[in-house]
Design a binder for these strands. Structure first.
Lengths: 207, 207
DNA sequence: CGTCTATTTGAATGTACTCAAAAGCGGTGG
DNA sequence: CCACCGCTTTTGAGTACATTCAAATAGACG
């Protein structure tokens, strides 16, 4: 700890840092230097409900770490239909990984569902972070590794479960998301139409 | 380079090392020490066609790097239906990531489709490798990162494309796999029944 | 050559989709 | 405070894509 501040000095910035630090600590242990460097690498951004963090077609600004609120990353296909790739709430990383790493235009949109506060780690800053402290290589290796396991499972679930089972699993696994996410986006995430999700839900109630 | 061997001395082991080294070199640059340590961390395994590398329910032995042949990783659901999560040919890593990292029993089977030769990196050896040389943290970070992008895309494709389009894309993207993989496993990978794949294929021919 | 498995074919069925319209819900202004 | 607007959710009818089941055909291997 660099300095000890009296309790009354605790402001929003510190509270938020603590949330993020706790999340980082799940995967890695950081020295004070590393922690400070991490935070100076991040750029804070505030988003209003509905506002875009990233847009498909434009180069992604960086990896997005959600502090408060909720964002979704989605793909618009050639027919103009949206498909939600992921949601992200407090402590989740999101964004268009492909674009961030290659510098190519993003294929996904990333958008705030409600008023949100996020930290952005640009590719330049990320490269710098990774080059200076290998502990962040480890951090991101584990982050991507875990995410990969989740994605594999989601693919298998899509093929082995019915829409109804996937919906139940979604509710069970991400109960906090229901407060942020309109049903039509949940339907999209599950790979079904909003009409069909509505019918699935009705069936649940009447049973 | 440690020693230069005359061309006649090139044997299978060296040829194979070169294939793997070229693949590693795509992501990272290794010193001789790192390269040697990497290879001594790997255990060679030969598999006959149909033989299991890993079995669901048993602890996975490690990350599997394919040298020659072809393996598939698949999940058997509660109804007894198999769902192929991925195929792996020369230079691809495969296995049950979740099990390798947590030590829990594997949920996926990993099995050779044809006679294959692989290298296995156990969790212990992997941890050692990562702890000693941070270049491998970087290597695996990039590996998982790329794989994550691919998995995200596969999920979106499942929701935005028809079975016919997914099949065409699969053929286009992995043309070499057709020589190893029976149609019923391709169907499974695409999330459809072998009967329906057969009808998709017939339609292509008659058109 | 015979056996075993993979692939194809066809008919009946089902799950989820499309399209159209009604109902619900939240915000805004008169 | 209520009426209206825009957007989300629900409902229903008709349809399409893909499945299940059963059986025939084709291929691979000993």
């Amino acid at each position: 700890m660099l300095t000890l501040l009296p309790a009354v000095c605790l402001n929003f910035a510190h509270v938020n840092r603590d949330i993020i630090l706790n999340l980082l600590a799940r995967h890695t242990e950081l020295t004070d230097t590393e922690r400070d460097f991490f935070f100076t690498s991040l750029q804070p951004v505030r988003l209003r409900a509905g506002e875009f963090m990233e847009e498909a077609g434009k180069k992604a600004s960086g990896l997005v770490l959600v502090e408060t609120g909720c964002l979704m990353t989605y793909y618009t296909d050639h027919a103009g239909h949206d498909h939600v790739a992921q949601f992200a709430t407090t402590g989740w990383w999101t964004g268009d990984l492909q674009s961030i790493l290659t510098g190519q235009p993003a294929v996904y949109h990333t958008r705030a569902l409600v008023e949100s506060s996020v930290w952005v780690l640009s590719k330049t800053r990320m490269d710098d972070l990774l080059a200076r402290f290998s502990v962040f290589e480890k951090y991101f290796r584990i982050l991507f590794q875990k995410s990969l396991v989740t994605h594999q499972k989601r693919i298998i679930d899509t093929f082995s479960l019915t829409a109804e089972q996937r919906y139940e699993q979604f509710r069970h696994r991400y109960p906090h998301l229901e407060q942020f996410v309109p049903l039509k986006y949940i339907a999209s995430y599950l790979g079904i139409t909003p009409e069909f999700l509505s019918k699935v839900r009705r069936k649940k109630v009447t049973n």
